[in-house]
Design a protein around this nucleic acid. Structure first.
Lengths: 331, 331
DNA sequence: GGATCTGGCTGAAACGTTTCACCGCGCGTG
DNA sequence: CACGCGCGGTGAAACGTTTCAGCCAGATCC
C-alpha cells in the first residue's frame, strides 16, 4: 500500500511537504505542489485515516446508534443527523442495535475504540452495563428520542406522554369507550411514556382500557397483537399502537379477519411514517419531527465537542395528531 | 485520555504485558492478569483502535454503501450483511448515498481512508470519477444488487430483466393490453434492466407500453407519476412500477382520485417490502431475496479478503412474483 | 553592504498500539 | 552439579501521519 513516503520519494521532496500539499496547499510553491499532486494521482495515494487520527487525537466521524433501522422513523432521524454533520464536514456512520442490548454494547464499544467525535444514541435502556462502560470512555454523546437529565448529557426527544394523551383524547372524542393500547417492550422509555399518557388522558373518562404488550415494535408483532385483539371479548372499538409498524400489523390482521376500519375498529398509530398514509386504510397517527430530531441532536453534539464549557440541554419537541381514515367518523 | 502506558505504570508492569492481557490473556500469569484487569477497570481504559489499526494495517470494519436507506429493501440487505459480518467478528458501518454521486464519492473516500476491510457497494453508476478513484485505492469491494464482470469484482445481484419480464407477463396474462411502466432514474442499471425485461416480454404481444420516468424511487415520486398517469388518455389499465415505494405512491394517487384498484387500474410493484402487503390494496410485487443478497455479498467479501487468490464471482438470484389484490381478477 | 525579513522546504519527534527478540529464574534431568 | 527448558515478563522498533523548530537563499530596507 502506497504511503506518504513513497509519494515524497518519487516527487523528490520531504514527507513534510507532501503533508502540506494535502492539508495546507497554499503554503507550498505552485510548481512543487503540482508535481506532488501529479505523483499522488499517479501512485493512487490515499492517506491513512488511522495514522492521521492517531496523531490528531480526534476523528472526523460521528456515530449514530438507533433502535431499529427497519423503522422509517429512525431513517429520517439519520437523514437529519447526516445533514447537520455534513454541514460541519463530518461523516456519520450508522449502526443498528435492533433493540438488542448485546449489539448495542458491541457498537458502543466500537465507537469508543474508534474515538469518534461523538455519538448520537437512542439506547435500549438508560441503565445497564454497556452504557455505563461507554460513559466511562469519555466519548461525548447526546440522547436522541430519549429524555435525560441535563446533569448527565444533552438529549433531544419528543414528549411521548403528550403524544399518548393526544391519541387517547382523540379516541375519546370520536366516541370510543372500550380502547386497547398495543404497546411495545416496556424496557423502552418511549413505550412506558406513551402508555402513561394514555392512562392519564383516560383517567376518569369512564373508558375501559386494555393493554397488550407486543413482542417487538415491528409489523409482524403487530399482526400477532391484532390476532390476540380479535380474540378478546367484549372486543374494543378502538386501538392505539405504540408505533406505526405495530398499527400496520394490527390493520392487516383486522382486514384479514374482515373487520371494517374504522366502523368496527378505529386505529391510531405513532410516528406518522410515510407508509401510514398509504396503508389499506390510511392511518391516523401521532407525528414526530424525526428529521428535526436528528438534526438538532447532531447540532447539540457538535456544539458540545467544539466547546466543552457548553452546558447540557434537554430539548423536547411536541408531537402532533394527524387524522386520517382509520379513525374518521363516517355517516 | 488514559492509554496503555497509564495502565502499565499503575499496575507496575510493562506496556507489553498490558497488551498481552488485552489480546492474549493466557500468556500472562493469573495474578498479574487480574491486577492489570482491575487497573483497566479502575482507570476506564479503552484501547485506541486507530493506533491498533495503524500497527495491524487492517481494520475490523466492513463498509456498506447503499442507494437509499429509506427503502426497506436496503435495510434488509444491511441486516443480511451484518449477520454474516458479525459471524466473523467484524462490525458493519452503513452509509447512505441517497442516490447522490457526491455523497457516494464522499463515503467511498471515507471508507478508503479508514482502510476498512472491504466495502459492499450498490453504486449509483458503475462508471464515474468517484468509483474510479475508489478502485485505485485498492480497497476490496463487492457489488450488491448490481451485476459486474467477474474480471473487475465479485457481485451479487438479482436478475432484473427476468423480474421485469415476470411482472409484464403477469399483466398480459391477466388480460391487460394498455400497460404503463413507471421507471426510476435511467442512470440506475436496475431500472434499465427492469425496463428491458418489460419490453422483451411485451414484444409481439400486441400490448401497448407507456413509459414514465419518475424523478426518484420514493413514495412522493410515485404520487407525481400517478398524477401524470391519470392525465394520459387513453388511460392504461395496468401499471408496473420499478419499486414498491413508487407503486405505493401511484396507489395513493389512484385511491385519491377514486380510481378502483384493480378493476380500473392494476398495479405491480417491485421488491416486495413488508409494507407492500399492508397497503391500501395489497400490492402484487416482484420479490427479491434482500437479506440473502446482503449475506452472500458479505461472505464473498470476507472470502476474498481472507485469501486474495480467490476468484471473483458473479452471483445472480432469481426473483419471484407475489400476487396480491392489486392485480387479482375479480368476478 | 550588512542586517532583517520571508517564502519554501526539511528533519525529527510524537501519537498509542502490537510484536518480537531477549532475559532471568526456577525446575527437572542426566 | 551443570545443563537446558519453559514460564513470565521487558524493552524497543515499527506502523503512517502531522506539526513544528529550524535552515537556506533571496528580497528588502536603511
Amino acid at each position: 500500500m502506497v504511503g506518504i513516503k513513497d509519494v515524497a520519494k518519487r516527487a523528490g521532496v520531504s514527507i513534510g511537504t507532501v503533508s502540506n500539499v494535502v492539508n495546507r496547499p497554499h503554503v507550498v510553491a505552485v510548481a512543487t505542489r503540482n508535481r506532488v499532486l501529479s505523483v499522488i494521482e499517479e501512485l493512487g495515494y490515499v492517506r491513512d485515516e488511522s495514522a492521521r487520527q492517531l496523531r490528531a487525537g480526534r476523528s472526523r466521524i460521528m456515530g449514530l446508534l438507533v433502535l431499529d433501522l427497519g423503522n422509517p422513523f429512525f431513517v429520517d432521524v439519520a437523514r437529519g443527523a447526516e445533514q447537520a454533520a455534513h454541514a460541519e464536514g463530518l461523516n456519520v456512520i450508522t449502526a443498528n442495535s435492533s433493540q438488542r442490548s448485546d449489539l448495542e454494547a458491541s457498537y458502543l464499544a466500537m465507537f469508543a475504540e474508534q474515538r469518534v467525535r461523538g455519538v448520537l444514541l437512542s439506547p435500549v435502556a438508560t441503565s445497564g452495563e454497556a452504557l455505563r462502560a461507554f460513559r466511562r470512555s469519555g466519548t461525548p454523546y447526546v440522547f436522541v428520542d430519549r429524555k435525560a437529565p441535563a446533569s448527565e448529557a444533552s438529549s433531544v426527544a419528543v414528549d411521548d406522554i403528550a403524544g399518548g394523551g393526544l391519541a387517547a383524547r382523540h379516541l375519546l372524542e370520536t366516541g370510543h369507550r372500550r380502547i386497547a393500547f398495543v404497546n411495545g417492550p416496556a424496557i423502552l422509555a418511549q413505550c412506558r411514556d406513551r402508555e402513561q399518557g394514555v392512562r392519564a388522558a383516560l383517567e376518569g373518562s369512564g373508558a375501559e382500557l386494555t393493554v397488550l404488550e407486543a413482542i417487538g415494535l415491528d409489523v409482524s408483532s403487530g399482526r400477532d397483537a391484532g390476532a390476540r385483539l380479535l380474540g378478546t371479548s367484549p372486543r374494543p372499538t378502538a386501538v392505539f399502537c405504540a408505533n406505526d409498524l405495530l398499527a400496520l400489523g394490527v390493520l392487516q390482521a383486522m382486514v384479514g379477519a374482515g373487520v371494517r376500519i374504522p366502523e368496527e375498529m378505529a386505529i391510531v398509530g405513532y410516528d406518522d411514517i410515510e407508509f401510514a398514509g398509504a396503508a389499506a386504510v390510511p392511518l391516523t397517527s401521532v407525528r414526530q419531527p424525526a428529521k428535526r430530531l436528528g438534526r438538532t441532536a447532531a447540532e447539540l453534539l457538535l456544539a458540545e465537542t467544539a466547546d466543552t464549557t457548553v452546558e447540557h440541554q434537554a430539548v423536547v419537541f411536541t408531537p402532533e395528531l394527524v387524522v386520517r381514515e382509520s379513525t374518521r367518523v363516517r355517516r
